[in-house]
Design a protein around this nucleic acid. Sequence first.
DNA 1: AGCCAGGTCTTCG
DNA 2: CGAAGACATGGC
Length: 285
Amino acid sequence: MNIEKSKNKIIITGDHFSVREILCSGQVFRFNSLNSGYTLTAGKEFALLKQSGQKTVIECTDEEYFYNYFDLDTDYSVIIKKLEENCLIKGAVNYGRGIRILKQEKLETVISFIISANNNIKRIQGIIDRICLSLGEKYNFNGMEYYAFPPIEKLAQAGEDFYKSIGAGYRASYLDKTSKEIALGFDLTAIENMTLNSAEKSLMSLYGIGKKVCDCILLFAYGRQDVFPVDTWIEKVYYDSFCTCGEKICREKIAEHFTGIFKEYSGYAQQYLFYYKRNFKSENK
DNA sequence: AGCCAGGTCTTCG
DNA sequence: CGAAGACATGGC
């Protein structure tokens, strides 16, 4: 993969970078497709992404920010080679070769994945968009308007009724309580340096964050690849392809099954399997 | 129309 | 403990 970085611009050529696959893999929610490409908002930063074949041009507010955001220092050919030692995942990896796991904002990821619980991706996107539209600061990049993800003070002040009014449903109280707790001093940064167990315990003490949402936050915002979030799609993957005993087991055990196989590459494996199961419909029924 | 969605929390045996 | 039920809303 070749990367050229200049003022407000990154140009990427090579394998293992598909804008569509990255954005549509369920890890990120604030993007829109245009005729010519995609717009993407992360925190208070903005990018316009255009890809044709092996070449991607990113015009953005801050090239260093997005270089890190897309984790461009990581060589995915090494990861893929390692994962393909398990033949059950080869098809999924091949289907989503252009996927990368992003390095997202911590607060934004916490809020987004609380909203994700028992919800569908389209609606998750709508709810987050309305939060940003109502509480986020308006910016402009090359004539394109966008709204930043709101700071914690705004989220904490908004109140449960606000979250209900923008369609969060029963998650409104989760959002209200947890944003208030973070505003009062819950330290999202401190989790970076914790062991996996402590990090999980800490995040799961927040209202609305259970094991699955917690693992998504650790994977997508803290770069922890040793977790394996189990949702309804991954349950299907397990029972369709990896379950040898035929009996039903809890999600915790399913996660243990997969982390036992994929170890420090679990997070990557999970993302390829999720994307494959959710999108490759034709062969799945 | 009715089931389902990147589950979590609470309550009940 | 583990299982079962409640929960808002809209996508398809």
